[in-house]
């Protein structure tokens, strides 16, 4: 982690990988602010189903997005080991509720492939790249489309 900037210069990328359902996802570690354990969120009335609510992140209000629900895989049944990955996107912090954090990977950028053109949008539209790590497919999340910078406003 300490040499992440160096890695960037040498065309490497560091990814934080985590599990949602039975799939492996990743985000660029540069967008990760912190990882914290699950605390119950205060639900927001009339919010979209993937918004679990809000929690107190050191005095500020943090919106929690249920990534599984967002990716169309059903809500996460929260257990102790669930974690919230606080990411920064479009200038604001959002908490991603995921099943578990797996690993930190350091990869050459060349190891990332564009996602295949799948006609059905589904969860693939939130994926910006794919890579294979130890025979597992890791989907790199496109934070901007998964978490639209437009506020996740209720309709």
């Amino acid at each position: 982690m300490t040499d992440s900037t160096e890695n960037l210069q040498t065309n490497e990328i560091e990814l934080l990988t985590f599990r949602v359902g039975d799939q492996e996802y990743a985000v660029d570690i540069m967008s990760v602010r912190e990882i914290r354990g699950w605390t119950s969120a205060t639900p927001l009335p009339h919010a979209p189903s993937f918004v679990r609510g809000v929690i107190n992140l050191r005095g500020t209000v943090l919106t929690i997005v249920d990534l599984s629900e967002r990716l169309g895989m059903g809500t996460i049944a929260v257990r102790e080991r669930n974690v919230i990955i606080v990411v920064q996107t479009a200038g604001q912090n959002i908490g991603l509720l995921v099943d578990a954090v797996s690993d930190i990977l350091s990869l050459p950028l060349s190891a990332l492939q564009p996602p295949p053109e799948v006609p059905s949008a589904g969860s693939n539209s939130f994926v910006s790249a794919l890579t294979i790590v130890k025979d597992r497919m890791v989907r790199v999340l496109d934070l901007n489309s998964a978490l639209p910078c437009e506020p996740l406003e209720a309709t």
């Binding site: 927001l44 009339h46 809000v54 500020t60 919106t63 604001q92």
Partner: peptide
Amino acid sequence: IKGLEDTFGRVPGV
């Protein structure tokens, strides 16, 4: 008072 709007926009009734 902590604003919600920055993170979430307006929530009806809130």
